[in-house]
Design a protein around this nucleic acid. Structure first.
Lengths: 126, 126
DNA sequence: CCGAATCCACAACGATACTG
DNA sequence: CAGTATCGTTGTGGATTCGG
């Protein structure tokens, strides 16, 4: 997908259009906070403040910003309860859960190659 | 992994250490250029300039910077041919190929939910 | 051809303060 | 509690240049 480049089929224009759009989507979503939020959300639905605690290190601003982005792209659903104080809950959509599966893969990968990476770093830094 | 937080087993310290280190690794690698490079590399080995063409939009600087990072973490191998002009080739290591599998998953995901995302964006922007 | 270093514009981010 | 806006700082990334 992202790396495809030479085509000669008649529907050239459409393919390159969807291809560049795909890359744009990819670029927007492939950032660490988005992934950490998706991971944290998991199967459950969480409030803003719960997320804030769970995704440790994230600032209020980054959290809202990324949640808006994820909502816009249809990965999370935002549910506002008009109570006082307000209560806002976030849940992964089906698309979000599908993406989470691949993010889980990355997490598993990190676990698996943990030692390899540490060793490689030491070698490199010498 | 990344979202785990409460533990009470005796080896607490080790777990939280490896956990935070895992998050650090995750954060370093989860950026769009790294992913696009890994995708572009695929099974083949490519020269610097070939990568530069293939990962369209990337600058000379970002490419070297990310390649160094990936090399340091043991995801790509860098092979210098001492010819003139120099010839430098990059290849995914086994760890790199394993990660590529999950990145492929993300690409497939993008293809799959392409329409869903576009639709959601339109709804949101209105 | 590849890489490192410099410079600099501008985007990202954190902190803070204010609203419903 | 959740969200928006503003501001000041830091950092990111492109352009360019020089060096192997």
């Amino acid at each position: 997908m992202v790396t495809k480049q030479i085509k000669d089929s008649p529907d050239d224009a459409d393919l390159t259009r969807s291809d560049s759009l795909a890359r744009e989507i990819f670029s927007e979503i492939a950032n660490k906070w988005a992934f950490l939020i998706i991971e944290s959300l998991g199967e459950r639905t969480l409030r803003f403040s719960e997320l804030r605690n769970k995704v440790e290190g994230i600032s209020h601003k980054m959290l809202t910003q990324n949640l808006r982005m994820l909502e816009r792209n249809g990965l999370v659903e935002r549910k506002v309860h008009p109570t006082v104080p307000p209560r806002v809950e976030y849940t992964l959509t089906e698309a979000g859960r599908a993406l989470r599966a691949t993010v889980d893969g990355m997490c598993a990968w990190t676990q698996r190659y943990f030692g390899h990476i540490e060793a490689s770093r030491h070698r490199f830094d010498a």
